[in-house]
């Protein structure tokens, strides 16, 4: 089974560009997209349709935008870190904000990495290539007992 990256992103355009960059960087991983904070929580906790882990496998890592409808990225992050079973899931913020308050807050809540969306598709491709290499290949993840 291919390892899966969960992308929480509400902007269709960004989703499209990120998916394109994943393809360009020849990343073998599958991507599942949730378009709001609640979707992310539901996916991770296996609520509703996400209970079918064969169809919606538990992700190896999550790319999290901060500005999300219904539940912000920081709220999702805080929620994950409070769940004993899944709190060790690597979460990488991928956002357009360079505000130091956002960065501080995210790290305070226990984010694993903070990336700012680059302006050009080329840079995005390079970034996701590095992301893949680091988090999917080099990084050793902890066991996660998910539902």
């Amino acid at each position: 089974m291919k390892s899966l990256v969960l992308l929480a992103e509400d902007d269709d355009n960004d989703v499209l560009l990120i998916k394109r960059a994943f393809q360009k960087s020849r990343v073998a991983n599958a991507i599942e997209v949730v378009s709001d904070g609640e979707g992310a929580v539901n996916y991770l906790s296996g609520e509703g349709i996400y209970g079918d882990r064969a169809r919606y496998p538990f992700p190896v890592a999550m790319l999290l935008d901060l500005k999300l409808p219904r539940k912000s990225g920081l709220e999702v992050l805080a929620w994950v870190r409070q769940q004993p079973e899944i709190r060790r899931l690597p979460i990488i913020v991928l956002t357009s904000s360079r505000e130091s308050s956002d960065i501080r807050h995210a790290y305070d809540l226990g984010v694993n990495s903070y990336l700012v969306k680059p302006f050009t598709p080329l840079e995005l491709t390079e970034m996701l290539h590095s992301f893949n290499l680091y988090w999917m290949v080099l990084n050793e993840s902890a066991d996660i007992s998910y539902k």
Binding site: D11, N13, T95, S97, E99
Partner: peptide, 15 residues
């Protein structure tokens, strides 16, 4: 501004 105004720009540039 830093979030919302830049996102469409990035889309324009990106696409």
């Amino acid at each position: 501004v830093s979030h919302d105004l830049r996102a469409p720009l990035r889309t324009m540039q990106g696409f």
